[in-house]
Design a protein around this nucleic acid. Structure first.
Length: 288
DNA sequence: AACCGTGGCAACCGCCTCGTT
DNA sequence: TAACGAGGCGGTTGCCACGGT
């Protein structure tokens, strides 16, 4: 199966997009719509590969994109969704209107991962009666991030800061199966759903105790359609009432959506109540 | 003023899935 | 059923701006 040659191999432009290129891409998509990325650059008069065009459009030029100023609510939501979904950025982005997977990924990597790590570290340290890490560096980084964003927005000519309360949306149609590609699903399983302690691995034929199942799912609703991603686990076979060997437990799409829906309903309630203390408890409950 | 280290983020890369033939 | 191509995803890279010294 051949992969499309990357830009460098066919002498196309790479690196930052110029204003002219942006204009060409926008004009083309406004006239002809999205899709057919492979042939688009040529027809739009761009010396870029299709992937590059798609990325530029999806992450930067799309008119419905909300850039910068991640609100505290969005921030909380990202943390919670990450605790639930792991590094499934597109799924997380699907719940945050106007945010792209790339932006959320970057935001997580540069802001939240450190905070969550520190939070976790702090909690561990507190448990042991040891002082937690200094926070100074993070505060500095956040301040810098804010000023840089402000500057960029000033340069864009908007200069206004919008603090809009986010709405909870159904996810965009997304390929859930992407989870099976790498270890990113581990955080989903280990972080919030499944106790992966070795003692809880079942022997083949053994009945699955309810505490082994994903916590937010009713017990014994697991079907046989789990995804194999190369890590030993066992599934409960609903019909034969036995466990059978499979590689890992992944909620089905319906289960996943149902979990998310429940979570968002709870979240919306807290948003309505505007109870920051409860909200914090709610968010903290998801920090690993 | 110059240099260096760090952080943010746009863009790229490589792999995967899905639809089509 | 296999091969192929397009689109999508997450991980990673590299540039640039900023702050500290």
């Amino acid at each position: 199966m051949g992969r499309a040659p990357c830009c460098s191999k066919v002498g196309l432009h790479r690196g930052p997009w110029s204003a002219k290129e942006d204009r060409l891409l926008i004009q083309y998509i406004q006239a002809h719509g999205e899709g057919h990325w492979k042939s688009m650059p040529k027809r739009a008069g761009l010396l870029r590969c299709g992937k590059s065009c798609r990325l530029r459009w999806m992450n930067y030029l799309r008119p419905d994109i909300k850039r910068g100023n991640v609100t505290p609510d969005e921030d909380d939501l990202i943390v919670r969704l990450h605790a639930l979904l792991g590094n499934r950025w597109s799924l997380i982005a699907g719940r945050l209107p106007g945010r792209t997977d790339n932006e959320i990924k970057n935001y997580w990597n540069s802001h939240l991962s450190k905070r969550v790590r520190d939070h976790s570290h702090q909690r561990n340290s507190n448990n042991r009666g040891i002082k937690g890490p200094k926070k100074r560096k993070i505060v500095t980084a956040k301040v810098r991030s804010f000023t840089m964003k402000q500057k960029r927005e000033m340069n864009n000519g908007t200069g206004e800061t919008k603090m809009t309360k986010i709405k909870v949306h159904q996810p965009k149609p997304t390929r859930v199966s992407a989870v099976a590609r790498n270890n990113s699903c581990n955080s989903l399983l280990r972080g919030s759903c499944v106790n992966n302690s070795k003692n809880n691995i079942l022997e083949e034929g053994e009945t699955a105790p309810s505490e082994l199942l994903p916590q937010q799912l009713p017990p014994l609703v697991l079907q046989e359609d789990r995804i194999n991603v190369g890590e030993k686990f066992y599934c409960y076979d609903h019909h034969q009432e036995t466990t059978s060997s499979c590689d890992i437990l992944i909620p089905t799409k319906e289960e996943n959506d149902s979990m998310l829906q429940e979570m968002f309903e709870e979240y919306q309630e807290l948003l309505k109540a505007e109870d920051r203390v409860q909200m914090e408890t709610f968010v903290n409950s998801l920090l690993i």
